[in-house]
């Protein structure tokens, strides 16, 4: 069997490899090339060298949306992971109705980002109107916190499931041994459980980090960048540059932003993976 598999492996790999090449590698390389061009459609690209990159480092809106995205990412990563881990700890204690709670907390994740964005827009506008504050379209603070509440609400359940799986894999004998040695609940958590679930933490932080940077639908539906691009995150900024502007130079700018964005996300997530991986332990 194994021999046959080895012999035919190229045949089996081929369809996926073809699809991956056509659907990812070729467009990616073409995209890289286009970031050095001005174009209307991909066929009539005109090479302009580094002009696009020169422009985007002077584009204040892009820098603003970078800052906004970073401040959003930091708060939402911490918030989502702390709350998700807390819920996971609560729901691994054999409480009554654990399964129902797990299902309920997971459910927001099943709704699409655009729908969630509009629903939360109505909810938040309603509250703002009751307390007499400017509505979302005019309120940067509300837009920022609205986005955080929305993504937290959506992702906590998902991360919680990963943490639950991690906590259930902590061997009982370790916890028992800790109890016999007289460790308090806090010590058991901090010294035993946490190191044992480092791999779950790696996964969850990675997911929340990349999700935060790539956030698009929720941003588009909830605030659409209002007021005046102040709540516009990187992905939306790229989209707006590419599609909301007329003129071939903007396509090039948008493309160059997209390439920078891609590099940024890759670098940040690799750094994070290295940092958290190094803390992982084996039982």
């Amino acid at each position: 069997m194994e021999k046959a598999l080895k012999k035919y492996s190229p045949v089996f790999v081929l369809p996926t490899l073809l699809a991956f090449t056509i659907g990812f590698i070729i467009p990616f390389i073409e995209g890289l090339y286009l970031s050095f061009c001005q174009f209307t459609t991909v066929k009539n690209a005109k090479f302009v060298g580094l002009a696009n990159y020169k422009y985007i480092i002077t584009d204040e809106l892009f820098l603003n949306s970078f800052k906004f995205t970073v401040s959003f990412a930091v708060v939402s990563i911490v918030l989502i992971n702390v709350i998700a881990l807390g819920l996971a700890l609560l729901l691994t204690r054999n409480l009554k109705g654990t399964n129902i709670f797990r299902t309920v907390f997971f459910m927001p994740n099943l709704i699409g980002g655009i729908v969630l964005g509009y629903i939360w827009q109505i909810l938040i506008n309603c509250i703002l109107s009751i307390v007499g504050q400017p509505l979302l379209a005019l309120n940067t603070q509300a837009g920022y916190w609205g986005l955080i509440i929305l993504t937290a609400w959506q992702q906590i359940g998902y991360m919680m499931i990963i943490y639950i799986a991690g906590l259930q894999n902590v061997p009982d004998d370790l916890i028992e041994a800790a109890a016999i040695d007289g460790a308090t609940a806090w010590q058991t958590f901090w010294k035993v459980k946490l190191p044992m679930i480092m791999s779950s933490i790696t996964v969850c932080v990675f997911l929340t980090l990349t999700n935060s940077f790539k956030l698009f639908d929720q941003n588009l539906a909830l605030t659409a960048g209002d007021p005046g691009h102040l709540t516009e995150m990187l992905a939306l900024n790229i989209y707006q540059t590419f599609y909301a502007r007329a003129g071939m130079q903007w396509k090039g700018y948008g493309q160059a932003k997209a390439v920078l964005f891609c590099i940024l996300v890759v670098v940040i997530s690799f750094a994070q993976l290295r940092a958290t991986r190094s803390k992982e332990v084996q039982a």
Binding site: A137, L138, D226, P227, G228, A244, R245, A246
Partner: peptide
Amino acid sequence: SEEWKNGVGQALTA
């Protein structure tokens, strides 16, 4: 541009 219209719209709303 559309951006001009959006700017005016934003200011009108405010």
